[in-house]
């Protein structure tokens, strides 16, 4: 998915339409991000901070925990939708792990939009891909002010 048609960030109310694409966002996957995300989410599973034990458990290296992926997905969507967005649902499926020294590129597309109660209720399909493939594929439901 290219960044063609990318909206300015944050979006302005009333400018959203089906098939709108979110601007892409590249996240460098560093050891620091993996560990900081794990600790900020109080996830002390050793595979998220201890490379030696991660390898013993069958992994190539430490890898990002799912709570951090959730946080990044939420950030990606609200970077675009702005501070008046209200997220109501995030559903994600994990694939290729986020190992250190990779880059994950988020892309997204509006797959549902309806006006209700003075707000635009949107469904956004989100994908975060690294060098191994799709790390995360998911759906975010949110509502934003309408005009």
């Amino acid at each position: 998915m290219s960044a063609a048609g990318a909206a300015t960030s944050p979006i302005r109310a009333g400018r959203i339409a089906l098939a709108d694409r979110l601007p892409e966002l590249a996240i460098p996957i560093t050891r620091t991000l993996i560990v900081a995300g794990a600790i900020a989410s109080r996830d002390y599973q050793d595979v998220h901070h201890n490379a030696v034990l991660a390898v013993q458990r069958g992994s190539k290296d430490i890898f990002m925990n799912i709570l951090t992926t959730n946080g990044l997905v939420g950030r990606y969507v609200t970077d675009w939708a702005g501070p008046d967005a209200i997220i109501t649902r995030v559903a994600i499926r994990l694939g290729a792990p986020n190992y250190p020294d990779d880059t994950m590129v988020f892309s997204g597309e509006v797959t549902g939009a309806e006006k209700r109660d003075g707000r635009d209720h949107l469904t956004v399909a989100v994908r975060g891909a690294n060098s191994l493939g799709d790390h995360v594929v998911g759906t975010v439901e949110l509502n934003v002010p309408t005009c």
Binding site: G71, L72, G74
Partner: peptide, 10 residues
């Protein structure tokens, strides 16, 4: 701690 880790500037 969370928003700093995520780089979330909302």
């Amino acid at each position: 701690h969370w928003v700093e880790a995520m780089g979330d500037e909302n």
